[in-house]
């Protein structure tokens, strides 16, 4: 079954009301997460909080549509892959600072404070940390809820 049939299958996930509402809301949650990440060096928030907001959007998808749809959108392989990419890029940025003198030197141009493109490497670090944290928590949630779980007496 492809994604469209899976998401319309009524035996999976919650009721049609929950599915419709979460389909409407999920894009706004992702938009808010991206805002928190990209403006992390100007407004309160940052990579950690924004990454978890992105995770919550996918957790909403998983709760409303069931595990199969969420795994088809972002599988456990790609979740751990984005986790690795975020961590590796963060370390690479740290080592790029060695060109100017020491580990994690803010080597890019600082710009004028208050603008979106300013503060050198801090926005880039925010984006990579958001990728890392978001994918990691999504992977943990998949591990806890989708992987072979113990069946209780009632479900048998």
């Amino acid at each position: 079954m492809d994604l469209k049939e899976l998401s319309r299958d009524e035996s999976r996930g919650m009721t049609l009301i929950v599915k419709t509402i979460s389909r409407l809301i999920m894009s706004f949650v992702i938009l808010f997460g991206c805002f928190i990440i990209i403006y992390g060096h100007i407004t309160p928030g940052g990579g950690f909080a924004g990454g978890i907001i992105l995770t919550i959007a996918y957790v909403l998808l998983l709760l409303a549509f069931g595990g199969k749809v969420a795994m088809a959108k972002l599988s456990n392989f790609w979740a751990s892959m984005w986790d690795n990419i975020g961590a590796l890029s963060f370390v690479v940025i740290g080592f790029l600072g060695m060109t100017g003198g020491y580990f994690f030197l803010n080597f890019l141009d600082h710009g004028s404070p208050g603008h979106l493109v300013s503060a050198g490497m801090i926005p880039l670090c925010n984006i990579f940390i958001a990728l890392k944290v978001g994918a990691a928590l999504y992977a943990i949630f998949i591990g806890l809820s989708v992987y072979g779980r113990i069946v209780t007496e009632e479900e048998k």
Partner: peptide, 24 residues
Amino acid sequence: TGAVNVVAGVILDYRAYDTLGEAM
């Protein structure tokens, strides 16, 4: 650091090494 948000400036510039440890 050029960051208006002081918290972002501290955790990603002055104390970026701590943030690396947290990520690990």
